[in-house]
Design a protein around this nucleic acid. Structure first.
Length: 363
DNA sequence: CATTCGTGGCC
DNA sequence: TGGCCAAGAAT
């Protein structure tokens, strides 16, 4: 046969070939991850679910140790569903987005109570559970139950928006990207197709300096042909938050620290903190001292030099730290309690509070 | 649809 | 070093 013409498939054929090429790449280059099954096997739904919740907006590196801690202590969804919420929050502390931990626990309880300890095996059934949105439902359905669906995460958004040079910015482009991503589903192995695109996005089609030479879709990629692949996906500009200030009070009673729990909902919901002022934009440092907890043993507060700085997703924060030491048997104010400094590592402190305590105690 | 939710790593 | 980014969900 005439080699040139025959070796160059028609565009439609090339497009139809993509799912198989992506899977072939995956079979050679897939990452080994703790929650993944061996090649050719379906993964444990519990491990897939747990990993997917942890991986929401969180890097594989950060998740690794937490995943191992969780599956060691709670090997299946029944064990997790019988655990206390406080234990789950303590185990989750440091990983961020704490409503995920609350929903994780609520989901395990619901699976135990409403589904006889078995995860639903459809997108619709999964979607109805707490903490499982459209992405996670599709991911579990495809990866754990071999359902023919394409979950679209940040990696796949990037791969697909480059492949088709989609000019519409996120998040408006989500429906279009979902539609185009589905064209990369073949007749089988939906879960592997999804994980292949995620691995491709994580290791080849990276946000900066993508390694296009190694990509199984490089000849198909519209953005690469234009030479501006790094500029995809297009995104609407985000506004940065205003600096907020406040005060935190590190009170010790011998080897104990005064703490309280934050409200269940909202920022750092349900997590432990040292007492503090509210956080406001434009607030002066000394004004916050008026919100110090009333303790009889406090003769005077010592203001630590400097501030503790922390950046949340939607605003930066500066906290002034005041310290005081009170006599033994001083009562904790209503809603507060004493915890031994020696066991602070086991408490449900978010990182901003760990910074505050380290600053206040000179750790 | 826009906002609110953490944290660590990267350049 | 400040902004960006990471397997999104809930409201």
């Amino acid at each position: 046969m005439s080699s040139r013409a025959a070796a160059k498939p028609k565009p439609t054929d090339h497009q139809a070939d993509r799912p198989a090429r992506v899977l072939a790449w995956y079979d050679r280059h897939r990452r080994k991850l703790p929650w993944r099954a061996a090649a050719g096997e379906l993964a444990d739904p519990y491990r897939v679910w747990l990993s997917e919740i942890m991986l929401q907006q969180t890097t594989v590196r950060a998740v690794g140790p937490y995943f191992e801690k969780f599956v060691t202590r709670w090997p299946d969804v029944s064990a997790l569903g019988r655990a206390s919420l406080d234990d789950v929050l303590r185990m989750w502390a440091g990983l961020g987005y704490y409503s995920r931990a609350r929903n994780l626990h609520a989901c395990a309880v619901a699976v135990l109570r409403d589904h006889d300890g078995m995860f639903p095996d459809t997108e619709e059934g999964l979607r109805a559970l707490p903490g499982i949105g459209p992405y996670t439902a599709a991911a579990i359905a495809a990866i754990a139950f071999d359902r023919c669906t394409m979950p679209v995460d940040g990696n796949i958004e990037r791969v697909v928006s480059r492949l088709y040079a989609i000019e519409e910015p996120l998040p408006q482009a989500k429906p279009l990207i979902q539609q185009m991503a589905a064209t990369l589903l073949g007749p089988s192995r939906a879960g592997d197709s999804a994980q292949a695109l995620m691995d491709l996005g994580a290791t080849i089609c990276t946000p900066k300096k993508p390694a296009c030479a190694l990509c199984p879709l490089n000849d198909d990629c519209a953005a690469r042909r234009r030479g501006d692949q790094e500029t995809f996906p297009r995104k609407a500009p985000k506004k940065s938050g205003t600096l907020r200030r406040g005060a935190a009070f590190v009170v010790t009673r011998g080897g104990e620290l005064l703490v309280r729990s934050r409200p269940d909902k909202g920022l750092l919901g349900g997590m432990t903190e040292v007492p503090g002022s509210e956080w406001h934009a434009g607030q002066q440092d000394d004004a916050a001292l008026a919100q110090a907890p009333a303790l009889k043993g406090v003769a005077r507060w010592h203001r630590k030099a400097g501030v503790v700085s922390h950046v949340f997703t939607h605003f930066p924060l500066e906290l002034v730290v005041y310290t005081a030491s009170v006599p033994a048997r001083t009562r904790a104010p209503d809603g507060m309690r004493w915890v031994p400094v020696a066991t602070l590592d086991g408490e449900a402190f978010p990182n901003v509070m760990r910074k505050v305590i380290a600053h206040g105690l000179d750790l």
